[in-house]
């Protein structure tokens, strides 16, 4: 494995933030690479330098006494608004008044513009988009409205696929090829793999998840991830697995996996921006 990929994750490894698979890869690599081993030792040495000076013990007895002296006459949990604080507050409000006026004008102007140009589809979290998509699908087997598909595309990470036909694969393919990671990643001879069957598995996992079969989708995804080397498709599959866990109410696991992914893929904005916002209970009603 190339040093570049190891170095990108070496700090996270040093801090104990990497998942098992990457940790094992790094450990294996370090055994045979003196440069990366030196880099790791450098990180360890840097952390030894941190020694914040702490005052002597006399300071601490006075410290607690001073605090207790200040709070003893105050009612607990009742923030004291002194006159100075109140006047600071009113000064701040007065100072912000012109900004509020400008903001009001902008909002009104934007409203008028929307009246003229028609409604704008807002950027939404993936679960919300899914909910809309499933609701739309369930309405008399009609094709989802175009605007939902656009919203889904905006709400990365997972492209929302419709259950029928070629449009879907084209959408997914375009999205996959357009990934910035795709441009960055090149695979060495050892890392080459046949993408097509893996993409088919990814498609299957997405379809199962859309159909509400989260457990089956999870199985497919875990199988897929066990076969994948570091690649854009691995990142997408991981994010889908986060969602699938979330939909199964396995919040802790979903959050843990998301954190690990954010650590493992620091350059992937899609992963960094990914948020699990919808309440799992809402999602369950979709299934």
């Amino acid at each position: 494995m190339r040093c570049g990929r190891i170095r990108k994750r070496l700090m996270a490894y040093h801090d104990g933030e990497l998942g098992g698979a990457w940790s094992r890869r790094i450990e294996k690599h370090i055994l045979s690479c003196a440069m990366c081993e030196q880099a790791l030792e450098g990180l360890e040495a840097v952390d030894q330098t941190i020694a914040m000076p702490v005052p002597e013990s006399e300071y601490w007895s006075g410290f607690t006494a001073r605090i207790m002296d200040r709070v003893k006459d105050e009612p607990v949990g009742d923030p004291v608004q002194t006159k100075a604080a109140e006047s600071r507050l009113s000064y701040k409000v007065m100072r912000l008044a012109p900004a509020f006026s400008i903001a009001l004008v902008v909002v009104v102007a934007a409203g008028l513009l929307m009246e003229i140009r028609g409604p704008v589809v807002p950027r939404q979290s993936v679960p919300t988009v899914r909910k809309q998509a499933v609701e739309a699908d369930s309405m008399a087997n009609m094709t989802r409205p175009e605007q939902i598909d656009e919203a889904a595309m905006m709400a990365e990470p997972e492209p929302v696929l419709s259950s029928e036909g070629t449009d879907v694969s084209r959408t997914y393919h375009r999205d996959y090829k357009g990934s910035s990671l795709r441009k960055k990643e090149t695979f060495s001879r050892d890392d080459r793999y046949d993408e097509e069957p893996l993409r088919a598995l990814m498609f299957k996992a997405e379809t199962l998840s859309r159909e509400g079969k989260q457990e089956e989708s999870e199985k497919v995804l875990r199988d897929l991830l066990s076969q994948l080397p570091p690649s854009p498709i691995q990142e997408k599959a991981t994010m889908l697995l986060v969602q699938v866990l979330w939909y199964q109410d396995r919040i802790g696991e979903a959050r843990q996996l998301l954190t690990e992914s954010q650590v493992a893929f620091p350059d992937n904005d899609m992963v960094q921006e990914f948020k699990l916002e919808a309440a799992p209970a809402d999602v369950k009603t979709l299934q």
């Binding site: 000076p53 005052p55 410290f63 001073r66 605090i67 200040r70 709070v71 105050e74 607990v76 949990g77 009742d78 923030p79 004291v80």
Partner: peptide, 21 residues
């Protein structure tokens, strides 16, 4: 040290005032 002392004291005062929340 001086600012750290101020900040540490102020932190505990704020904590005390916000305990109910």
């Amino acid at each position: 040290h001086d600012d750290a002392d101020d900040a540490a004291q102020e932190t505990f005062i704020r904590v005390y005032r916000s305990l109910s929340s």
